[in-house]
Simulated scan of single mutants.
Amino acid sequence: MTDVIRRKIDRARPAAAEGAPGADRGWRLALARAARNAMGLDLEFRSLTITRQSLAEILEQVPDRALLGLLDGPQGGLGVIMLAPSVTAALIEKQTLGRLSAQPPAPRKASRIDAAMVAGVIDRALAGLDEALAEEADLIWAGGFRYASYLEDPRPLGLMLEDEGYRVLSADVLLGAGREGRVILVLPATGRGLRPALQTDAAEVEAPQFTAALGAQVMQADCRLDAVIGRLTLPLRQIMALAPGYVLTLPSATLDAVSLETIDGCRIAGGKLGQNRGMRALKLAEAVAVRPVTPAMPKVPRVALSEEPPPELRAAG
Score class of each variant (00 low, 15 high):
Leu70Lys: 03
Leu255Lys: 09
Ile58Tyr: 07
Leu151Val: 05
Leu43Tyr: 07
Asp264Ala: 14
Ala243Pro: 03
Pro63His: 06
Tyr147Ser: 04
Ala281Tyr: 13
Ser170His: 04
Ala106Lys: 09
Leu313Cys: 03
Arg33Phe: 10
Ala189Met: 00
Leu260Asp: 00
Arg11Lys: 12
Met240Asn: 15
Asp222His: 11
Ala202Cys: 00
Gly181Ile: 00
Gly265Ser: 01
Gly79Phe: 04
Ser101Thr: 14
Val186Thr: 10
Gly271Phe: 01
Gly76Asp: 07
Asp24Ile: 04
Ser170Met: 08
Pro244Glu: 09
Pro235His: 11
Pro298His: 10
Leu161Gln: 05
Pro74Leu: 09
Pro310Trp: 08
Ala106Met: 13
Asp130Phe: 07
Pro295Gln: 10
Ala116Thr: 10
Leu236Pro: 00
Glu308Thr: 13
Asp226Glu: 11
Ser54His: 10
Ala84Phe: 04
Ala20Glu: 13
Pro107Thr: 09
Ala102Gln: 10
Met160Val: 12
Gly143Tyr: 01
Gly26Val: 03
Leu151Thr: 01
Ala134Asn: 09
Ser252Arg: 13
Ala148Asp: 14
Ile113Pro: 02
Ala213Asn: 14
Ala202Gly: 01
Ala142His: 02
Ala110Ile: 06
Val247His: 04
Glu18His: 07
Ala90Thr: 08
Arg99Ile: 05
Thr49Phe: 00
Asp226Val: 10
Met117Pro: 06
Ala213Asp: 15
Thr262Gln: 08
Val186His: 02
Glu308Gln: 14
Ile268Met: 05
Ala197Leu: 10
Pro156Ile: 06
Gly144Phe: 01
Glu180Met: 02
Gln217Pro: 04
Leu284Asn: 00
Arg179Ala: 05
Lys8Trp: 11
Ser259Cys: 07
Leu126Met: 03
Arg13Tyr: 12
Arg167Glu: 07
Leu70His: 07
Asp264Pro: 00
Ile184Tyr: 01
Val80Ser: 00
Arg11Trp: 12
Phe210Ser: 04
Val205His: 09
Arg302His: 11
Asp222Trp: 05
Thr96Leu: 15
Ile268Asp: 04
Phe145Ile: 02
Arg124Glu: 15
Asp130Ala: 08
Val290Asn: 01
Gly176Gln: 07
Ala203Val: 05
Ala127Met: 11
Glu164Ile: 07
Leu68Gly: 03
Pro188Thr: 06
Val121Ile: 15
Ala12His: 12
Pro105Gly: 06
Gly278Val: 03
Met219Leu: 11
Ser170Ala: 07
Val118Thr: 13
Glu261Lys: 04
Ala171Ile: 02
Arg167Gly: 06
Glu44Ala: 12
Val288Thr: 11
Gly176Asp: 06
Ala296Phe: 06
Arg224Thr: 11
Ser111Glu: 04
Asp172Cys: 13
Gly128Arg: 03
Ser259Trp: 07
Gly77Thr: 15
Leu198Cys: 02
Ala20Pro: 08
Asp3Phe: 04
Lys94Gly: 03
